[in-house]
Simulated assay, not measured.
Amino acid sequence: MNAGTVLRRAHRFVAVVFTLTVIANFVAMAFGEPPALVVYSPLLPLFLLLFTGLYLFVQPYVTRWRGGRNLRATE
């Protein structure tokens, strides 16, 4: 398993965690003013999603720039 596969799986896992923290935030807001821990809990997964997503977005371009294999199917 290479680093790209591990990072892609981690990105998916963090996306689920982020979604659950946002849902928990809205549920807590339905019952009044939530504590600061609940309000700011989605920020850590959000930043992890930002960095892993940017890496996954740029990865094919860097591979092509370095002269790696062509990612598109050859005709």
Rank of each mutant, 00 (worst) to 15 (best):
Y40R: 10
Y40N: 09
P34M: 05
L43R: 05
A30P: 12
T74P: 13
F18A: 02
L43Q: 09
E33H: 11
T21I: 07
G68W: 11
R64H: 14
A15C: 03
A10T: 07
R12V: 01
L20F: 01
P42T: 01
T19M: 10
L54G: 13
G68E: 15
R64W: 13
L37Y: 12
R9M: 04
A24H: 00
R69A: 13
L37W: 11
R72I: 09
L46M: 01
N25D: 11
G67F: 07
F18Q: 02
L20G: 02
F51C: 02
F18E: 01
M29P: 03
T19G: 09
T63P: 06
F51M: 03
T74F: 14
W65G: 04
F47V: 02
N2C: 13
G67C: 13
T63W: 09
R8G: 14
L48T: 03
R12D: 01
M1S: 07
T74G: 15
G53I: 05
L49Q: 00
Y61M: 10
R12G: 01
L56S: 11
G53H: 10
I23S: 06
R64L: 12
T63I: 08
T74R: 15
Y55E: 11
L7V: 04
F13I: 15
Y61W: 12
L50C: 09
T74Y: 13
T74C: 13
F26Y: 07
V6N: 12
P35S: 14
F13T: 15
Y55I: 09
V38H: 01
M29R: 11
F26L: 06
M29H: 07
P45K: 02
L54K: 12
P34F: 03
R66Y: 04
A15Q: 02
T63G: 06
G4F: 06
V14G: 00
E33K: 14
S41H: 06
L50I: 14
S41P: 04
L50E: 07
F57W: 10
L37C: 13
L7F: 09
L46E: 00
A28K: 05
A3Y: 14
L54A: 10
P60M: 04
L54C: 13
R9P: 03
L46K: 00
P42S: 01
N70S: 15
N70T: 14
L44W: 02
F26H: 03
L46Y: 00
R9D: 02
G68I: 12
V39Y: 00
A28W: 02
V6K: 10
V27I: 14
F47Y: 02
G53Q: 03
A15M: 02
A3K: 12
N25Q: 13
L43M: 07
F57D: 11
T74V: 15
G67Y: 10
F26Q: 05
F31N: 15
L71K: 05
R12C: 02
T21A: 08
G53E: 08
F57G: 08
G4D: 09
L37F: 14
R8C: 13
V22C: 00
V58T: 12
G32V: 06
A10P: 10
E33P: 07
G53V: 10
T52K: 02
L48M: 14
A73W: 15
V62A: 07
A10D: 05
L48F: 10
L56K: 10
P45Y: 01
F31E: 05
V16A: 05
V22P: 00
I23P: 05
E33C: 06
L56R: 08
